[in-house]
Amino acid sequence: MTATTQNPEPAASGEVSPAPWHDRLPGGVVVWVFLTAELVTFSMFFVAYAWTYSANPDVFTESQSHLHRLSATINTAVLLTGSWMAARAVWSNHRGRRADLWLWGAAVSGVVFVVLKTVEYAEVLSDGFSMSTNSFWFYYLFVTFMHYLHVAGGVGIMAVVAVKARRGDYGPANALGVEAAAIYWHLIDVIWLFLFPLVYLVG
């Protein structure tokens, strides 16, 4: 481990000493700038989708009926479970415990999401739908694929951070990498939480 400190121990008075990460913004400032840019970008996609929907409600409702709502609901639960594991990784890292298994768990949840989504894309494309079919399929394929790429990238980030965590590169005094990876994973989750009802359910 490159930098280590002991976990805070209760003092004689019953108080505990400050943890090194406690007063700092989780993940550092840079990741929050990135998160803001991503959130604003996807928000614009959502607003554009809603605007086009309101102009063509019949086309959107009919097109939506070809999607698998249950599969998307399961994918939501999968991503939320990955987010929980990422949060647990941060929690464990702060305690000086192993975080790598939680990080691998989050990465596996991302792989499951990608596999289910790939199957969904294959079905949609084999049914003859494409970005040029109508405005719903354009938004569906474009926005969900953008999110899909973010999840695939997140799997890679989680795997790299998990390997580094196993190597002992992180700990209570050096938590930034684990926190930043977890914040990115939560961002992917937050984006999907809006995308899921908007594309699959509203109507």
Partner: peptide
Amino acid sequence: LLMGLATLKAVLIAAVFMEL
């Protein structure tokens, strides 16, 4: 309702998972 539920879930993630 659906976008409200999404907002509630996103705020929970920000508050607890992101430790904000």
